[in-house]
Simulated assay, not measured.
Amino acid sequence: MTDENSWTGEDVLDESARHARKMAKKKAARDRMMLTRNGQKGLIIVHTGPGKGKSSSGFGMILRCVAHGMPCAVIQFIKGAWDTGERRLLTTHFEDLCQFHAMGEGFTWETQDRARDIAAARAGWEKAKELIREPKVRFVLLDEINIALRYDYLDIAEVVEFLVTEKPAMTHVCLTGRNAQPELIEAADLVTEMAVVKHPFRAGIKAQAGVEF
């Protein structure tokens, strides 16, 4: 292995030239690939898996929409009762661009009422369909809908059929939550699975403002 301290000026120039040639080849290959990637469409996006960051990533895209002046909407299926940072920000500063509908009443072990949970999920889905159909709305975040689908509060076949057949061509829809159903993953254009490597909850640290909510 070469000691960098022993390099001469010529060695440095040679290394720089090799790097420049390597990067030029990469750029040429990238440019060729990009010539074939010029299509656009409204995406069905799924964020799932046991790791943290599914909703956070969805809200990150909502903020991108706001920054671009794109009308968007959020429907929360489970965490509707929470006073979250993203909810405060969007409803107090960007309500002209982002509609925010908190339709859930808490996690299933908190409500302990299946009929009530189903009713809340159905109301959320009806609002979701309304917003997805709205031509002016460009991006819809269905936060934690995968949990409602997992517990059969909503019919997965109905949700997938609507997204595939009725979603406007240029509208993006992002669905978050653990345990995304195989039918939804199959229908989606973009699927990301969040993995757990470490999580502070396992060390006795509770959810904290600015990180979890």
Rank of each mutant, 00 (worst) to 15 (best):
M1L: 04
A120I: 13
E110T: 14
A121Y: 13
A17I: 09
K127Q: 14
L90F: 05
L154F: 10
A81V: 10
E166F: 09
V159R: 13
M61R: 15
S55M: 09
D83I: 10
R202A: 09
L154P: 03
L190K: 01
E130L: 12
A188K: 10
I62C: 02
R178V: 08
A121T: 05
L142G: 02
S6P: 02
I145Y: 07
H68C: 11
F100A: 03
C98L: 11
I156Y: 00
M70T: 01
A67Q: 11
I44V: 13
A203Q: 08
T165C: 02
H68E: 14
M194V: 14
G124V: 03
L13G: 06
L149K: 07
I78M: 15
A209C: 04
A17C: 15
M103Q: 06
M34R: 13
K136A: 15
A123F: 07
G51P: 12
L184M: 09
V159P: 08
G124L: 08
G49E: 04
M194F: 15
D14Q: 12
L154I: 12
E15I: 09
I118V: 15
Q112F: 02
K26T: 08
I147R: 08
E158G: 00
I62D: 03
R133W: 03
S6Y: 05
A28W: 10
F139V: 01
R138S: 10
S56N: 06
H101P: 02
P182H: 05
F107Q: 06
V164N: 01
L190S: 09
C174S: 10
L43G: 00
M194S: 05
K26P: 00
K198N: 01
E105P: 02
R30T: 08
E166W: 11
I118K: 14
T48R: 08
R87H: 07
C174K: 06
F201S: 04
A119K: 15
R150E: 13
